[in-house]
Design a protein around this nucleic acid. Structure first.
Lengths: 149, 149
DNA sequence: TTGCATCCGGTACCCGGGTACAGGCTTACC
DNA sequence: GGTAAGCCTGTACCCGGGTACCGGATGCAA
């Protein structure tokens, strides 16, 4: 039946080589990121060797800021060829998202710097002169100009 | 007993004025962010009026990147005076965290830009010349030169 | 006093990305 | 053929920050 030399990789081998948990493999399978692999007669999974590379791709995409759903979509779109909104466009969108987050973090950083510079010593009863805390309204409320949902 | 004019604010009033859900108030109480308020004879909560301001402070601190546990700590440290690691130090630490996060996002942004510039069209079977995707190893693995943990 | 809005406590559920555990079967090596 | 390591399924749990729902009790005004 299954050739004795190298019929595929077993779960543990894939997990170890890719540096992920075994449970994660099955989780990805449920989520549609990994196709269901062939099985031995006894029901054990046998993965094609490029699964390790695929996992690397998934992890990279995650690092790029894509959610698992988005990665699943991208992989799916890659398999079937007819172009859904493609990778390039998604990357462009993701860059915009990232820019927004960076801007957000930068504003927060600025506010924190104010707190440090003013030598604030309490959130509620700060004794520093010109305490900035009451004025830290960064992103608190609905932006009046357009709702960036 | 409770003076008829204004013995305190009711849950719904606080929630509305602070722009949070009623459930959130009780959640914060469980988490130690809000002290247990006095009650009416019937058991309804009556909050001191400055609770609204306190909630604003909490929300601001959250926006500054503090977790609820950290906020609870900071508020607690503010109440009892003897100085635990103080707000200022925590703000400094938080700035470092944020800087790291920004650096991370910036690296990711760079990688995404490469993907866009190269006109990649697939995560796994990209047809573009000099496809950068196989080389996107940003933060993937243990850096060989020194481990910045 | 009645009626409706509000509030009560308790519990369960949501998101995203996994991880852990129990109890049983398969595979591999000697 | 024995035995240990590895794998199977299913289910439950973790994190953080809430949110939803339930049946019952209260508050308050008319």
């Amino acid at each position: 039946m299954l050739s004795p030399d190298r019929a595929g990789l077993r779960t543990g081998e894939v997990a170890e080589q890719a540096g992920v948990n075994i449970q994660t493999l099955r989780y990805y399978e449920r989520r549609g990121l990994l196709a269901e692999p062939v099985r031995t007669n006894g029901g054990h999974r046998l993965y094609p060797p490029d699964t390790v590379a695929l996992l690397t791709v998934i992890k990279t995409a995650q690092r790029l800021g894509f959610t698992l759903d988005e990665v699943a979509d991208l992989l799916e779109a890659g398999r079937r060829r007819h172009p859904t909104p493609d990778l390039r466009q998604r990357a462009v969108d993701k860059i915009a998202e990232i820019d927004a987050r960076i801007a957000d973090l930068t504003a927060i950083r600025g506010a924190l710097t104010e707190v440090v510079d003013a030598r604030c010593d309490s959130l509620t009863n700060c004794t520093c002169t010109d305490c900035p805390i009451p004025f830290l309204t960064i992103g608190t409320a609905e932006h009046p100009d357009g709702d960036p949902t």
